[in-house]
Amino acid sequence: MLKIIKITGESLSPKYQTGDYVLLATNIRPRRLRSGDVIVFQYEIYGQMIKRVERISPDSAQIFVTGTHPHSIDSATFGPISPTNLIGKVIWHIRKPR
């Protein structure tokens, strides 16, 4: 399955910026994820979020995410996310003209 998402916020800047679109593959299994993949997931406080995968626990039960901006709210703030909250992995990044 595929899904299109619009990005807001700057935590993955300068590569991903507000107004960019991403195409997601939504049938991704956590063990297929790799460090550096960009994923969209649900987080109860902040809603739908987009971050880069930092690492995955050996049993694939925890996904640690990070941003590229110094003020990013990520696993350093809220800890790892559960695979059940994973929505999809970015397979195409459509940049807003800079």
Binding site: K3, I4, I5, K6, I7, T8, G9, E10, S11, L12, S13, Y16, T18, Y21, V22, V40, Y46, G47, Q48, M49, I50, K51, G67, H69, H71, S72, I73, T77
Partner: peptide, 11 residues
Amino acid sequence: GFEEAKAHCDV
């Protein structure tokens, strides 16, 4: 009306 994902920052 595509859904949004937040690249959230603590500012």
